[in-house]
């Protein structure tokens, strides 16, 4: 049986990435998503999740990040919710991907990759929480 929705509550720690990755993989494989599309989704979610961990918090307390994975028609939908400082990835500065190696910076590259790989990204600030919904078309065309 294929679950319609998987919900996770993860700590703001990189060690949670493997739990997140395997949940995504199981969900995706049950839906028959191709390994290439699943790779693009996994990479995007890793980038967005690790971005929350690295930049979202100014204290050392444990915070919980809610992740919900679902699907609708031909889309896989991932919703990330955190109580970090307001951050809209859609407004993040685009990295310069042309300049020579000496001047190349890595900042925002992860967000750039996830924007390119996902088909849709919606950000909302609700009270003191960041809500990010990302969607990826999962049919092979």
């Amino acid at each position: 049986m294929i679950a319609d929705r998987v919900s996770l509550e993860l700590k703001n720690s990189l060690s949670e990435l493997s739990a997140l990755g395997s949940s995504l993989e199981q969900f995706g494989e049950a839906l028959g998503i191709s390994s290439k599309i699943l790779f693009e989704i996994s990479l995007s979610i890793e980038e967005l999740f690790s971005n929350i961990i690295s930049h979202g918090y100014t204290d050392d307390a444990v915070h919980w990040i809610k992740v919900a994975i679902s699907h609708e028609d031909e889309m896989l939908i991932i919703r990330l919710e955190d109580d970090g400082i307001p951050f809209d990835p859609l407004k993040a500065e685009e990295p310069d991907c042309e300049c020579p190696v000496e001047h190349r910076k890595i900042g925002n590259l992860g967000i750039h990759l996830s924007k390119k790989f996902m088909d849709d990204m919606i950000y909302e600030r609700q009270r003191d929480r960041n809500i990010l919904i990302v969607k990826k078309k999962i049919t092979n065309t």
Binding site: F39, S42, L43, E47, S50, V101, I106, L109, G110, L113
Partner: peptide, 12 residues
């Protein structure tokens, strides 16, 4: 099998 921007960062 997998690389993310963290891996790219090391190579850069």
């Amino acid at each position: 099998d997998y690389i993310s921007s963290a891996g790219l960062r090391v190579l850069l």
